[in-house]
Design a binder for these strands. Structure first.
Lengths: 174, 174
DNA sequence: CTGTGTGTTCAGTTTAGACTGAACGTACTA
DNA sequence: TAGTACGTTCAGTCTAAACTGAACACACAG
């Protein structure tokens, strides 16, 4: 069996190479919009998780941002392949946060949801709240430490100042 | 049985009331410093947890802030009643973050730790990193969406802008 | 060398909370 | 009235990550 190859003889390996090139082009240039959407939604889930929010809440937000349409309760469940219970809890969380809002379609008994105008200011508020709670805790601790414990109080004050700075920084973004 | 009461007759309910008052004074004024310290350390654990850090890492930080002394590896384990394994991982996390630093005592083979100068700037950096990762993800998604999908790109742009604002806000605090 | 004290590693356990899905209450339809 | 479609609730399951503790590797003392 000869291993000689003419100019246009292609081996299995060549096909593999070509497929590889196509795939990387695909990734860089022509990745289908469906795939981009899919990945974006999943990434939103991970971002939410990193912010101590349920992953599903993030995916719902991603859905809303990408598609920008009114989604019915059951469409959300179907689109993300999650239980109605999960839709219920995450949707009410996002609604309470002001990220999405409940709407209605005439002649349709289902709840519909869409991005609220200005969905993102809540995130500042969330971070601010956490910082404020921490600040308060430290302040109360310092108040409870006798005045003559200078060094303890000074270290607590420094810690307190950090949170005060953080709160001010977050306010500057609003 | 008479229900009349003289000026100094005390009922069961009165004792309850008095105890209640005493307790609230206790809370406000004379709570022992040991109890204040204990509670502060636990609260630091909870704050850390809310920031997606191990609870133990927060408690160690609380210990360092309140006591302000150099703590040996095993003292930390004993003081917080945690395993040496936990001390090791949380201590190396906090060291990597720059919140505490490793020191040494001459003639003592143990590692010692104390608050680093400027322990808190890392926290800004942490938040900034998360925001930057999110920003990058959204940006990449927008780049992958065809130019003619105007509305999708515009919604992504808004989302992106939020993170850009957050990053700028966090930078303003440094 | 042995023995002791140290910090790290990692396999196993525990725990918190996200997620599911069946049961429920409600509102509309026929 | 019964029947259907809807969203919520909650007890149970599942999962990821914190935490433990025993085994380990290293350094020093004897």
């Amino acid at each position: 069996m000869s291993t000689e190859r003419g100019l246009f003889d292609l081996t299995c390996a060549d096909f593999g190479l070509i497929r590889g090139i196509t795939e990387s082009w695909d990734h860089l240039l022509s990745r289908s919009i469906a795939a981009v959407r899919e990945q974006f939604i999943e990434q939103c889930g991970l971002i939410a998780q990193a912010e101590a929010l349920p992953r599903i809440a993030g995916r719902i937000l991603g859905l809303m941002v990408f598609d920008g349409k009114d989604y019915s309760f059951s469409e959300i469940a179907e689109e993300l392949q999650i239980s109605r219970g999960s839709v219920s809890s995450s949707v009410s969380l996002l609604t309470a946060m002001g990220v999405i809002e409940r709407t209605a379609k005439p002649g349709d008994r289902q709840d519909y949801f869409r991005l609220s105008e200005d969905p993102y200011t809540t995130f500042f508020a969330r971070a601010r709240n956490r910082a404020e709670r921490a600040h308060k805790t430290i302040q109360e601790t310092r108040d409870a430490v006798p005045k003559d414990k200078r060094e303890i109080r000074s270290r607590l004050k420094e810690y307190e100042t950090f949170y005060a700075t953080l709160i001010k920084a977050l306010d500057s973004g609003t």
